[in-house]
Design a protein around this nucleic acid. Structure first.
Lengths: 201, 201
DNA sequence: GGGCTGAGTCAACGGCGTTGACGGTGTGAG
DNA sequence: CTCACACCGTCAACGCCGTTGACTCAGCCC
């Protein structure tokens, strides 16, 4: 479920809005981005987002339909993985892990945690599935060889999601305390073994 | 985060309770088990659990302290993995995956989903971490050879958690539709590669 | 100028987890 | 035997939540 490689969100049809409407809409979106990141999906209430944006809570719903819809429009499911996937397939395992284990990416961590927290909402779950298929499996599978390419790509995503879960959500002490380079080598190769069995170290 | 191999829950100190108290306590626990399983942590309200048990909502809190505490006492974090872990380490990867991919274990799926939904609560998260360390890493690590045994065991848990996440929570269509035997072979070997690199197929 | 549509306000709904004040009731000590 | 006390349960309410509907007001087009 890592969700990387995102396209810029296509805010649909704000043309019919008047300038005032577009401005408050943007204010709400920014407040939502901030609060969803810092407090998570459950911790960020519609009322708090409205207050942060200096706006009536009802207006938030009026503009975006529901908290879930606001979340989906606001928190980018992308975690910025595009460039990592573009490199050589033979070493993508370690590069993926290295990207996420890097401590200098708090925003990525925040977004993943928020996403994991909201995963039980139907629309969010659907978006996550769609995203996995579109930005992970689709670009990866054609570059693999052998049988079950799509399945192997999907299982590699599962591996990655599991690491991020223990690392970001559970904050597992063993993995957290471990030497990042070791984690990259061990887990990266485990992922690599699924993608290119013949090239795995 | 798979949480298996559980000991029977040690309900602490119900001796001081009168028969009536113990009975309604048991009724609440059973109702909670049912509703948490079928509706998840967020979907099962304290009020609904109380109604199912034929009891006042306030009584639920009075007996268990909070919804989160009731959840922890009620939903067994164990997923029944003990026997799987006891077998030979050289093939534990495939056996673990086979256990969870088996469609005939709906209760395990339900419990995992409920757990994942409640993972953002502090006490639940702590319990999950504790459980990972106690029932996965502790029995597994000493039976491994080579460097970083604890870390490798923890990373194997991460792999498993990732699979269950995509399989149970996200219901990823690719993995769901795939031949279970293939998933067992591919993912089982990926886990095995982390545990016993020399024995991996 | 008059209708229409977008923008914003306000009060309220039903639900949530939780609390506190308040009656009964069974048990053990005097 | 009685009386105090801890347990058991009830009830109404608190403050929060996401969401809705009725309403006002301003700007645009015909």
């Amino acid at each position: 479920m890592p969700y990387g490689c995102g396209v810029t969100k296509t805010s649909p049809a704000t043309d019919h809005l008047r300038p005032a409407g577009r401005a408050t809409r943007a204010a709400i979106e920014e407040a939502a981005r901030t609060l969803f990141s810092t407090r998570g999906f459950e911790g960020a209430s519609v009322r708090a987002i409205a207050a942060e944006a200096g706006v009536d809570p009802a207006l938030v719903i009026r503009h975006f339909g529901s908290k879930e819809a606001l979340f989906l429009r606001t928190v980018d499911t992308s975690l910025g993985i595009g460039s990592v996937l573009e490199g050589p397939v033979e070493t993508v395992g370690r590069r993926l892990v290295a990207y996420f284990v890097d401590a200098e990416r708090p925003a990525v961590r925040q977004r993943f945690v928020a996403l994991a927290q909201a995963a039980h909402r139907d629309q969010v779950r659907e978006e996550m599935v769609r995203h996995t298929a579109e930005t992970y499996v689709a670009p990866l599978a054609p570059r693999l060889t052998g049988a079950d390419r799509e399945l192997r790509a999907a299982l590699a995503v599962a591996q990655l999601a599991g690491l991020l879960n223990l690392l970001y959500v559970q904050e597992d002490p063993i993995i957290t305390a471990a030497d990042p380079a070791t984690v990259v080598a061990l887990y990266g190769d485990a992922i690599q073994g699924l993608l290119t069995p013949e090239a795995a170290g």
